[in-house]
Design a protein around this nucleic acid. Sequence first.
DNA 1: ATTATCTATAGATCTATAGATAATGC
DNA 2: ATTATCTATAGATCTATAGATAATGC
Lengths: 206, 206
Amino acid sequence: MSLHKGGCGLLWVPYGDAMSSRARTEERRAEIVRAALEVIAERGYRGASMAAIAERVGLTQQGLLHYFPTKDALLVAVLKERDQWDAVPDSQWRLDLLGSLVEYNAMRPGIVQTFSALLGESVTEGHPTREFFTERYVRVRATMAEALRAAYGERLPSGLSPERAAPLLVAVMDGLQYQWLLDPESVDMPGAFRDFLALLGEADAS
Amino acid sequence: MSLHKGGCGLLWVPYGDAMSSRARTEERRAEIVRAALEVIAERGYRGASMAAIAERVGLTQQGLLHYFPTKDALLVAVLKERDQWDAVPDSQWRLDLLGSLVEYNAMRPGIVQTFSALLGESVTEGHPTREFFTERYVRVRATMAEALRAAYGERLPSGLSPERAAPLLVAVMDGLQYQWLLDPESVDMPGAFRDFLALLGEADAS
DNA sequence: ATTATCTATAGATCTATAGATAATGC
DNA sequence: ATTATCTATAGATCTATAGATAATGC
Protein backbone atom coordinates (compact mmCIF):
# COMPACT_ATOMS: atom_id res chain seq x y z
CA MET A 1 0.00 0.00 0.00
CA SER A 2 1.83 3.03 -1.29
CA LEU A 3 1.76 6.18 0.73
CA HIS A 4 1.01 9.53 -0.83
CA LYS A 5 4.08 11.50 -1.67
CA GLY A 6 3.87 14.18 0.97
CA GLY A 7 3.53 12.06 4.09
CA CYS A 8 0.45 12.61 6.15
CA GLY A 9 1.29 12.83 9.82
CA LEU A 10 -0.96 15.79 10.40
CA LEU A 11 -4.03 14.15 9.02
CA TRP A 12 -3.59 10.82 10.76
CA VAL A 13 -6.81 9.10 11.76
CA PRO A 14 -7.20 5.78 13.55
CA TYR A 15 -8.23 3.33 10.82
CA GLY A 16 -5.45 0.78 10.56
CA ASP A 17 -2.05 1.64 9.16
CA ALA A 18 -3.09 3.90 6.30
CA MET A 19 -5.14 6.99 5.97
CA SER A 20 -8.86 6.56 5.85
CA SER A 21 -10.24 7.20 2.43
CA ARG A 22 -11.91 10.33 3.70
CA ALA A 23 -8.60 11.71 4.92
CA ARG A 24 -6.96 10.84 1.62
CA THR A 25 -9.69 12.63 -0.27
CA GLU A 26 -9.23 15.67 1.92
CA GLU A 27 -5.52 15.67 1.28
CA ARG A 28 -6.07 15.47 -2.44
CA ARG A 29 -8.46 18.38 -2.27
CA ALA A 30 -5.88 20.37 -0.34
CA GLU A 31 -3.28 19.62 -3.01
CA ILE A 32 -5.69 20.85 -5.65
CA VAL A 33 -6.36 24.06 -3.75
CA ARG A 34 -2.62 24.67 -3.52
CA ALA A 35 -2.28 24.12 -7.26
CA ALA A 36 -5.18 26.47 -7.89
CA LEU A 37 -3.50 29.17 -5.78
CA GLU A 38 -0.40 28.84 -7.92
CA VAL A 39 -2.17 28.98 -11.23
CA ILE A 40 -4.35 31.90 -10.15
CA ALA A 41 -1.21 33.78 -9.13
CA GLU A 42 0.18 33.21 -12.59
CA ARG A 43 -2.90 33.93 -14.65
CA GLY A 44 -5.68 35.35 -12.47
CA TYR A 45 -8.96 33.56 -11.90
CA ARG A 46 -10.45 34.22 -15.32
CA GLY A 47 -7.21 33.13 -16.92
CA ALA A 48 -6.76 30.02 -14.78
CA SER A 49 -8.27 27.11 -16.68
CA MET A 50 -9.38 23.98 -14.92
CA ALA A 51 -7.15 22.04 -17.28
CA ALA A 52 -4.08 24.03 -16.20
CA ILE A 53 -4.86 23.46 -12.52
CA ALA A 54 -5.47 19.77 -13.16
CA GLU A 55 -2.18 19.43 -14.97
CA ARG A 56 -0.35 21.13 -12.10
CA VAL A 57 -1.59 18.46 -9.74
CA GLY A 58 -1.23 15.57 -12.18
CA LEU A 59 -4.84 14.98 -13.14
CA THR A 60 -6.91 15.38 -16.23
CA GLN A 61 -9.38 18.21 -16.26
CA GLN A 62 -12.19 15.72 -15.80
CA GLY A 63 -10.38 14.09 -12.91
CA LEU A 64 -10.25 17.47 -11.21
CA LEU A 65 -14.00 17.89 -11.65
CA HIS A 66 -14.45 14.80 -9.55
CA TYR A 67 -13.16 16.79 -6.54
CA PHE A 68 -14.62 20.17 -7.39
CA PRO A 69 -17.63 19.85 -9.65
CA THR A 70 -17.41 23.43 -10.94
CA LYS A 71 -14.75 26.07 -11.24
CA ASP A 72 -16.62 28.27 -8.77
CA ALA A 73 -16.66 25.49 -6.20
CA LEU A 74 -12.89 25.39 -6.41
CA LEU A 75 -12.68 29.16 -6.03
CA VAL A 76 -14.79 28.97 -2.89
CA ALA A 77 -12.34 26.48 -1.43
CA VAL A 78 -9.45 28.78 -2.34
CA LEU A 79 -11.09 31.72 -0.55
CA LYS A 80 -11.86 29.61 2.50
CA GLU A 81 -8.23 28.62 2.68
CA ARG A 82 -7.32 32.31 2.56
CA ASP A 83 -9.63 33.09 5.44
CA GLN A 84 -7.84 30.54 7.59
CA TRP A 85 -4.38 31.97 7.13
CA ASP A 86 -4.53 35.28 8.81
CA ALA A 87 -7.08 33.81 11.12
CA VAL A 88 -5.94 35.64 14.18
CA PRO A 89 -9.18 36.01 16.11
CA ASP A 90 -10.49 39.48 15.29
CA SER A 91 -10.25 40.71 18.84
CA GLN A 92 -6.61 39.74 19.21
CA TRP A 93 -5.03 41.82 16.47
CA ARG A 94 -2.43 44.05 17.96
CA LEU A 95 -0.94 46.86 15.95
CA ASP A 96 2.61 45.60 16.30
CA LEU A 97 1.62 42.31 14.67
CA LEU A 98 0.88 44.13 11.44
CA GLY A 99 4.47 45.03 10.71
CA SER A 100 5.38 41.37 11.12
CA LEU A 101 2.58 40.32 8.82
CA VAL A 102 3.84 42.62 6.09
CA GLU A 103 7.36 41.31 6.58
CA TYR A 104 6.08 37.78 6.35
CA ASN A 105 4.14 38.61 3.19
CA ALA A 106 7.30 39.98 1.62
CA MET A 107 8.63 36.43 1.80
CA ARG A 108 5.72 34.86 -0.06
CA PRO A 109 5.15 36.75 -3.27
CA GLY A 110 3.10 33.91 -4.71
CA ILE A 111 0.33 34.20 -2.16
CA VAL A 112 0.34 37.96 -2.25
CA GLN A 113 0.08 37.78 -6.02
CA THR A 114 -2.85 35.38 -5.90
CA PHE A 115 -4.90 37.69 -3.76
CA SER A 116 -3.83 40.89 -5.44
CA ALA A 117 -4.94 39.40 -8.76
CA LEU A 118 -8.25 38.29 -7.25
CA LEU A 119 -8.82 41.68 -5.62
CA GLY A 120 -8.28 43.34 -8.98
CA GLU A 121 -10.76 41.05 -10.69
CA SER A 122 -13.25 41.43 -7.87
CA VAL A 123 -14.18 44.97 -8.90
CA THR A 124 -15.50 43.78 -12.27
CA GLU A 125 -19.19 43.15 -12.53
CA GLY A 126 -20.62 39.88 -11.34
CA HIS A 127 -17.25 38.47 -10.40
CA PRO A 128 -17.54 35.57 -7.97
CA THR A 129 -15.04 37.11 -5.54
CA ARG A 130 -16.79 40.45 -5.31
CA GLU A 131 -19.01 39.68 -2.36
CA PHE A 132 -16.19 37.90 -0.57
CA PHE A 133 -13.89 40.92 -0.75
CA THR A 134 -16.63 43.43 0.04
CA GLU A 135 -17.51 41.63 3.24
CA ARG A 136 -13.91 40.96 4.08
CA TYR A 137 -13.01 44.65 3.91
CA VAL A 138 -15.91 45.63 6.15
CA ARG A 139 -14.59 43.15 8.67
CA VAL A 140 -10.93 44.06 8.25
CA ARG A 141 -11.58 47.78 8.66
CA ALA A 142 -13.48 47.07 11.87
CA THR A 143 -10.71 44.83 13.16
CA MET A 144 -8.06 47.42 12.38
CA ALA A 145 -10.08 50.15 14.05
CA GLU A 146 -10.23 47.99 17.16
CA ALA A 147 -6.48 47.39 17.09
CA LEU A 148 -5.88 51.13 16.72
CA ARG A 149 -8.25 51.86 19.57
CA ALA A 150 -6.48 49.34 21.77
CA ALA A 151 -3.17 51.04 21.00
CA TYR A 152 -4.17 54.70 21.14
CA GLY A 153 -7.65 55.10 22.57
CA GLU A 154 -10.27 57.31 20.92
CA ARG A 155 -7.79 59.60 19.18
CA LEU A 156 -4.52 58.72 17.53
CA PRO A 157 -1.65 61.10 18.26
CA SER A 158 -2.35 62.67 14.88
CA GLY A 159 -5.90 63.46 15.95
CA LEU A 160 -7.62 60.89 13.71
CA SER A 161 -10.24 58.58 15.14
CA PRO A 162 -9.54 54.83 14.86
CA GLU A 163 -12.42 54.54 12.38
CA ARG A 164 -10.93 57.10 10.07
CA ALA A 165 -7.42 55.75 10.28
CA ALA A 166 -8.46 52.15 9.59
CA PRO A 167 -9.22 52.47 5.85
CA LEU A 168 -5.90 54.24 5.37
CA LEU A 169 -4.06 51.42 7.09
CA VAL A 170 -5.73 48.85 4.88
CA ALA A 171 -5.19 50.94 1.75
CA VAL A 172 -1.48 51.27 2.41
CA MET A 173 -1.09 47.51 2.84
CA ASP A 174 -2.92 46.73 -0.40
CA GLY A 175 -1.43 49.54 -2.43
CA LEU A 176 2.12 48.72 -1.41
CA GLN A 177 1.58 45.13 -2.48
CA TYR A 178 0.86 46.15 -6.07
CA GLN A 179 3.90 48.41 -6.26
CA TRP A 180 6.05 45.72 -4.70
CA LEU A 181 4.79 42.88 -6.91
CA LEU A 182 5.44 44.93 -10.04
CA ASP A 183 8.90 46.05 -8.97
CA PRO A 184 10.28 44.36 -5.86
CA GLU A 185 13.73 45.88 -6.39
CA SER A 186 12.41 49.43 -6.18
CA VAL A 187 9.92 49.05 -3.36
CA ASP A 188 10.79 48.16 0.21
CA MET A 189 7.33 47.03 1.25
CA PRO A 190 8.00 46.29 4.94
CA GLY A 191 10.08 49.44 5.35
CA ALA A 192 7.45 51.64 3.75
CA PHE A 193 4.78 50.08 5.93
CA ARG A 194 6.81 50.78 9.06
CA ASP A 195 7.14 54.38 7.91
CA PHE A 196 3.39 54.56 7.72
CA LEU A 197 2.88 53.06 11.17
CA ALA A 198 5.31 55.63 12.55
CA LEU A 199 3.35 58.37 10.81
CA LEU A 200 0.15 57.20 12.46
CA GLY A 201 1.80 57.20 15.84
CA GLU A 202 3.18 60.71 15.64
CA ALA A 203 1.62 63.59 17.53
CA ASP A 204 -0.20 66.44 15.89
CA ALA A 205 1.84 69.60 16.31
CA SER A 206 -0.60 71.96 14.67
CA MET B 1 -23.82 63.77 -46.68
CA SER B 2 -24.73 62.73 -43.17
CA LEU B 3 -22.69 63.85 -40.23
CA HIS B 4 -21.56 61.49 -37.56
CA LYS B 5 -23.81 61.42 -34.53
CA GLY B 6 -21.67 63.29 -32.05
CA GLY B 7 -20.84 66.35 -34.04
CA CYS B 8 -17.20 66.96 -34.73
CA GLY B 9 -16.27 70.53 -34.02
CA LEU B 10 -13.13 69.58 -32.20
CA LEU B 11 -11.77 67.47 -35.00
CA TRP B 12 -12.62 69.86 -37.79
CA VAL B 13 -10.12 69.92 -40.62
CA PRO B 14 -10.18 72.08 -43.72
CA TYR B 15 -11.31 69.70 -46.46
CA GLY B 16 -14.62 71.00 -47.66
CA ASP B 17 -17.76 70.74 -45.56
CA ALA B 18 -17.27 67.30 -44.05
CA MET B 19 -14.60 65.60 -42.04
CA SER B 20 -11.70 64.21 -43.96
CA SER B 21 -11.71 60.47 -44.08
CA ARG B 22 -8.66 60.39 -41.85
CA ALA B 23 -10.45 62.43 -39.20
CA ARG B 24 -13.48 60.20 -39.44
CA THR B 25 -11.32 57.13 -39.00
CA GLU B 26 -9.70 58.68 -35.96
CA GLU B 27 -13.07 59.45 -34.46
CA ARG B 28 -14.21 55.88 -34.98
CA ARG B 29 -11.07 54.61 -33.30
CA ALA B 30 -11.73 56.93 -30.38
CA GLU B 31 -15.27 55.58 -30.09
CA ILE B 32 -13.88 52.06 -30.03
CA VAL B 33 -11.39 52.94 -27.32
CA ARG B 34 -14.20 54.37 -25.21
CA ALA B 35 -16.21 51.19 -25.71
CA ALA B 36 -13.17 49.12 -24.75
CA LEU B 37 -12.74 51.13 -21.55
CA GLU B 38 -16.34 50.35 -20.64
CA VAL B 39 -16.16 46.67 -21.35
CA ILE B 40 -12.83 46.30 -19.54
CA ALA B 41 -14.36 48.02 -16.51
CA GLU B 42 -17.15 45.47 -16.56
CA ARG B 43 -15.14 42.34 -17.24
CA GLY B 44 -11.42 43.04 -17.00
CA TYR B 45 -9.09 42.72 -19.97
CA ARG B 46 -9.00 38.94 -20.08
CA GLY B 47 -12.76 38.87 -19.79
CA ALA B 48 -13.37 41.58 -22.38
CA SER B 49 -13.96 39.85 -25.70
CA MET B 50 -13.44 41.67 -28.96
CA ALA B 51 -16.98 40.69 -29.89
CA ALA B 52 -18.40 42.41 -26.80
CA ILE B 53 -16.44 45.59 -27.51
CA ALA B 54 -17.52 45.51 -31.15
CA GLU B 55 -21.14 45.10 -30.18
CA ARG B 56 -20.90 48.05 -27.78
CA VAL B 57 -19.85 50.27 -30.67
CA GLY B 58 -22.19 48.73 -33.22
CA LEU B 59 -19.78 46.66 -35.26
CA THR B 60 -19.15 43.02 -35.85
CA GLN B 61 -16.08 41.56 -34.27
CA GLN B 62 -14.43 41.46 -37.69
CA GLY B 63 -15.36 45.05 -38.34
CA LEU B 64 -13.54 45.99 -35.15
CA LEU B 65 -10.45 44.15 -36.31
CA HIS B 66 -10.34 46.52 -39.26
CA TYR B 67 -9.45 49.33 -36.84
CA PHE B 68 -7.35 47.38 -34.36
CA PRO B 69 -5.86 44.28 -35.95
CA THR B 70 -5.28 42.49 -32.64
CA LYS B 71 -6.68 42.68 -29.15
CA ASP B 72 -3.32 43.80 -27.83
CA ALA B 73 -3.23 46.69 -30.31
CA LEU B 74 -6.51 47.88 -28.87
CA LEU B 75 -5.16 47.57 -25.34
CA VAL B 76 -2.18 49.70 -26.27
CA ALA B 77 -4.54 52.41 -27.50
CA VAL B 78 -6.50 52.18 -24.23
CA LEU B 79 -3.34 52.64 -22.19
CA LYS B 80 -2.19 55.58 -24.33
CA GLU B 81 -5.52 57.24 -23.73
CA ARG B 82 -5.00 56.76 -20.02
CA ASP B 83 -1.62 58.39 -20.17
CA GLN B 84 -3.15 61.49 -21.69
CA TRP B 85 -5.72 62.03 -19.00
CA ASP B 86 -3.71 62.91 -16.00
CA ALA B 87 -1.13 64.36 -18.32
CA VAL B 88 -0.21 67.20 -16.08
CA PRO B 89 3.44 67.74 -16.99
CA ASP B 90 5.44 65.85 -14.40
CA SER B 91 7.14 68.94 -13.12
CA GLN B 92 3.89 70.78 -12.49
CA TRP B 93 2.20 68.44 -10.02
CA ARG B 94 1.44 70.34 -6.89
CA LEU B 95 0.41 68.49 -3.79
CA ASP B 96 -2.88 70.33 -3.47
CA LEU B 97 -3.91 69.12 -6.93
CA LEU B 98 -3.94 65.56 -5.65
CA GLY B 99 -6.92 66.03 -3.38
CA SER B 100 -8.86 67.42 -6.32
CA LEU B 101 -7.82 64.52 -8.51
CA VAL B 102 -9.16 62.05 -5.97
CA GLU B 103 -12.40 64.02 -5.71
CA TYR B 104 -12.69 64.02 -9.46
CA ASN B 105 -12.05 60.28 -9.58
CA ALA B 106 -14.84 59.73 -7.08
CA MET B 107 -17.18 61.04 -9.78
CA ARG B 108 -16.08 58.61 -12.46
CA PRO B 109 -16.20 55.10 -11.04
CA GLY B 110 -16.11 53.57 -14.53
CA ILE B 111 -12.65 54.85 -15.32
CA VAL B 112 -11.34 54.05 -11.88
CA GLN B 113 -12.72 50.56 -12.25
CA THR B 114 -11.09 50.04 -15.64
CA PHE B 115 -7.66 50.83 -14.31
CA SER B 116 -8.09 49.06 -11.00
CA ALA B 117 -9.05 45.93 -12.91
CA LEU B 118 -6.07 46.31 -15.24
CA LEU B 119 -3.70 46.93 -12.32
CA GLY B 120 -4.93 43.74 -10.69
CA GLU B 121 -4.37 41.73 -13.83
CA SER B 122 -0.99 43.33 -14.42
CA VAL B 123 0.65 41.37 -11.61
CA THR B 124 -0.05 38.05 -13.32
CA GLU B 125 2.70 36.60 -15.43
CA GLY B 126 3.21 37.79 -18.94
CA HIS B 127 0.25 40.13 -18.83
CA PRO B 128 0.44 42.79 -21.54
CA THR B 129 -0.11 45.62 -19.03
CA ARG B 130 2.67 44.57 -16.70
CA GLU B 131 5.45 46.60 -18.22
CA PHE B 132 3.18 49.60 -18.65
CA PHE B 133 2.28 49.70 -14.97
CA THR B 134 5.79 48.94 -13.77
CA GLU B 135 7.19 51.88 -15.68
CA ARG B 136 4.28 54.08 -14.80
CA TYR B 137 4.80 53.54 -11.07
CA VAL B 138 8.48 54.36 -11.29
CA ARG B 139 7.50 57.62 -12.96
CA VAL B 140 4.60 58.39 -10.64
CA ARG B 141 6.67 57.81 -7.50
CA ALA B 142 9.31 60.19 -8.84
CA THR B 143 6.70 62.82 -9.70
CA MET B 144 5.10 62.56 -6.29
CA ALA B 145 8.49 62.82 -4.58
CA GLU B 146 9.09 66.03 -6.50
CA ALA B 147 5.70 67.43 -5.53
CA LEU B 148 6.40 66.59 -1.90
CA ARG B 149 9.81 68.21 -2.12
CA ALA B 150 8.31 71.35 -3.61
CA ALA B 151 5.84 71.52 -0.73
CA TYR B 152 8.08 70.58 2.17
CA GLY B 153 11.72 70.55 1.16
CA GLU B 154 14.02 67.67 2.06
CA ARG B 155 12.06 66.54 5.12
CA LEU B 156 8.34 66.38 5.60
CA PRO B 157 7.09 67.64 8.97
CA SER B 158 6.88 64.01 10.02
CA GLY B 159 10.58 63.55 9.32
CA LEU B 160 10.17 61.37 6.22
CA SER B 161 12.12 62.17 3.08
CA PRO B 162 10.05 62.86 -0.06
CA GLU B 163 11.35 59.62 -1.59
CA ARG B 164 10.07 57.57 1.32
CA ALA B 165 6.73 59.29 1.51
CA ALA B 166 6.03 58.96 -2.22
CA PRO B 167 5.25 55.21 -2.33
CA LEU B 168 2.92 55.65 0.63
CA LEU B 169 1.06 58.42 -1.15
CA VAL B 170 0.62 56.27 -4.24
CA ALA B 171 -0.35 53.22 -2.19
CA VAL B 172 -3.07 55.10 -0.36
CA MET B 173 -4.59 56.35 -3.61
CA ASP B 174 -4.67 52.89 -5.15
CA GLY B 175 -5.71 51.04 -2.04
CA LEU B 176 -8.57 53.42 -1.32
CA GLN B 177 -9.85 52.92 -4.85
CA TYR B 178 -10.36 49.21 -4.31
CA GLN B 179 -12.15 49.68 -1.02
CA TRP B 180 -14.29 52.41 -2.55
CA LEU B 181 -15.18 50.48 -5.71
CA LEU B 182 -16.25 47.47 -3.67
CA ASP B 183 -18.30 49.48 -1.20
CA PRO B 184 -18.82 53.14 -2.10
CA GLU B 185 -21.36 53.61 0.69
CA SER B 186 -18.89 52.66 3.38
CA VAL B 187 -15.78 54.38 2.09
CA ASP B 188 -15.38 58.14 1.75
CA MET B 189 -12.46 58.06 -0.65
CA PRO B 190 -11.78 61.80 -0.97
CA GLY B 191 -12.22 62.32 2.78
CA ALA B 192 -9.86 59.49 3.65
CA PHE B 193 -7.32 60.81 1.21
CA ARG B 194 -7.49 64.28 2.75
CA ASP B 195 -6.92 62.65 6.14
CA PHE B 196 -3.79 61.09 4.77
CA LEU B 197 -2.50 64.35 3.30
CA ALA B 198 -3.04 65.98 6.67
CA LEU B 199 -1.12 63.16 8.31
CA LEU B 200 1.82 63.73 5.98
CA GLY B 201 1.81 67.43 6.76
CA GLU B 202 1.85 67.07 10.52
CA ALA B 203 4.95 67.70 12.55
CA ASP B 204 6.83 64.97 14.36
CA ALA B 205 6.43 65.44 18.09
CA SER B 206 8.63 62.58 19.15
C1' DA C 1 -7.22 53.24 -54.76
C1' DT C 2 -8.55 53.33 -50.15
C1' DT C 3 -11.68 52.67 -46.45
C1' DA C 4 -15.43 50.45 -44.01
C1' DT C 5 -17.84 46.55 -43.25
C1' DC C 6 -19.66 42.10 -43.77
C1' DT C 7 -20.01 36.66 -44.21
C1' DA C 8 -17.66 32.49 -43.61
C1' DT C 9 -14.68 29.90 -41.19
C1' DA C 10 -10.27 27.86 -39.17
C1' DG C 11 -8.29 26.46 -35.16
C1' DA C 12 -7.83 27.01 -30.13
C1' DT C 13 -9.69 26.84 -25.80
C1' DC C 14 -13.01 26.24 -22.03
C1' DT C 15 -16.47 24.31 -18.87
C1' DA C 16 -19.13 20.61 -18.06
C1' DT C 17 -21.69 16.04 -18.83
C1' DA C 18 -21.92 11.01 -19.74
C1' DG C 19 -20.40 6.91 -18.96
C1' DA C 20 -16.59 3.37 -18.64
C1' DT C 21 -12.97 1.07 -15.75
C1' DA C 22 -10.33 -0.05 -11.91
C1' DA C 23 -9.23 0.04 -7.06
C1' DT C 24 -10.67 0.44 -2.06
C1' DG C 25 -13.01 -0.54 2.13
C1' DC C 26 -16.91 -2.04 4.91
C1' DA D 1 -20.94 0.52 -2.56
C1' DT D 2 -17.93 4.20 -2.93
C1' DT D 3 -14.03 6.57 -4.68
C1' DA D 4 -10.67 7.86 -8.18
C1' DT D 5 -9.74 8.46 -12.57
C1' DC D 6 -10.03 8.14 -17.52
C1' DT D 7 -11.88 8.68 -22.65
C1' DA D 8 -15.10 10.87 -25.47
C1' DT D 9 -17.55 14.65 -26.57
C1' DA D 10 -21.15 18.47 -26.58
C1' DG D 11 -21.69 23.12 -26.91
C1' DA D 12 -19.84 27.76 -26.06
C1' DT D 13 -16.57 31.08 -26.82
C1' DC D 14 -12.48 33.45 -28.60
C1' DT D 15 -8.98 35.45 -31.68
C1' DA D 16 -7.76 35.91 -36.12
C1' DT D 17 -7.57 35.19 -41.36
C1' DA D 18 -9.55 35.25 -46.08
C1' DG D 19 -12.00 37.29 -49.18
C1' DA D 20 -16.34 39.64 -50.86
C1' DT D 21 -19.03 44.03 -51.41
C1' DA D 22 -20.10 48.68 -51.24
C1' DA D 23 -19.04 53.47 -50.55
C1' DT D 24 -15.66 57.47 -50.61
C1' DG D 25 -12.35 60.62 -52.31
C1' DC D 26 -8.50 62.01 -55.21
